[in-house]
Every structure is written in structure tokens, then in C-alpha cells.
């Protein structure tokens, strides 16, 4: 078991095995926050999809993971940052089955279904930031 992490932690996504490291980091936080096993699995899976997007479509970037609270409950928030080409058509990108690269096109829309909160900030030519949050039930 990795040591307990306090505060936000940031790791690069520049290679294939970084995606695995992002999964492990998110799992550590999800366990610390005591999300249920199903919720842990959903969040880690969403993080895996998003980290792969950052690597493949965004040309690399970084992930940031932190424990958050809205006053009533605790949660885990993960954000994925890249300075890639951005997403020109959001509606299309969030539709099931759409993909501009490899994969089944479930990346964005699938990840959105797995979390409680999903925010996407993108600008063509500037890059993309996707932030997801899972709250403790």
C-alpha cells in the first residue's frame, strides 16, 4: 500500500505506463477517502480512460488528484490537463461511439457516466482540461 498522500498530487502523462501510474494514484486516494469498492472501481476506470485521452489526443500532459469536500461529504477529484489541439465539436465528442483515434469512442462519454461530476474545458489550439469528481455515498 502506497503511503498516505495529503493535499493534491500531480503526475505527468507522457508515456504508456504513466496511465497505469495515474490509475494507481487515483486508487490510493479513493481508498483513503473510503469510497465503496464499486465507486473506487468506477473512478479508477474513468481516470484510466481520461489519462489515455490526454496521452493519445492531447499529446501528453499531466494529471492532478486530490481529496475534496463539499461540507457534507468527502470525495476524490481528478483532473487531466493537456496542451493539445483541443476538441472542436463537444457534442460529437461526448456522444457514444465517437472517436477521433483508436478506441471504441467510449472514452469521454463512458467516463462521464462513471463519475458524479464531469467538467470539460477545451479550446481549439490551446488544449483540454477534464475534471471528474466522485463523492462518497
Amino acid at each position: 500500500m502506497p503511503p498516505r498522500s495529503d493535499g493534491p498530487e500531480q503526475i505527468p502523462i507522457d508515456a504508456d505506463d504513466d496511465v497505469v501510474r495515474v490509475r494507481q494514484l487515483v486508487r490510493t486516494y479513493a481508498q483513503q477517502t473510503k469510497l465503496s469498492l464499486v465507486d473506487q472501481t468506477k473512478l479508477v476506470t474513468a481516470a484510466s480512460e481520461l489519462a489515455r485521452n490526454t496521452l493519445i489526443y492531447g499529446g501528453g500532459g499531466f494529471a492532478r488528484v486530490e481529496e475534496v469536500s463539499d461540507g457534507r461529504r468527502a470525495g476524490v477529484r481528478a483532473s487531466f490537463h493537456d496542451e493539445g489541439p483541443g476538441i472542436p465539436d463537444l457534442t460529437l465528442a461526448l456522444a457514444d461511439g465517437w472517436s477521433s483515434g483508436s478506441g471504441l469512442g467510449l472514452g469521454l462519454s463512458g467516463a462521464r457516466r462513471l463519475v458524479d461530476q464531469f467538467d470539460l474545458d477545451t479550446e481549439v489550439g490551446r488544449g483540454t482540461v477534464v475534471t471528474v469528481t466522485k463523492w462518497k455515498r
Binding site: L37, V38, Q40, T41, K42, T45, E49, D96, L104, L106, S109, G110, R113, L114
Partner: peptide, 12 residues
């Protein structure tokens, strides 16, 4: 089970 539930939610 947790993996199966997640896959269904993912749409796979």
C-alpha cells in the same frame, strides 16, 4: 462484481 458493474455503466 465491481468490474462488471463498471463495464456495464461504461457501456461495454
Amino acid at each position: 462484481p465491481a468490474v462488471a458493474i463498471t463495464l456495464v455503466e461504461l457501456g461495454l
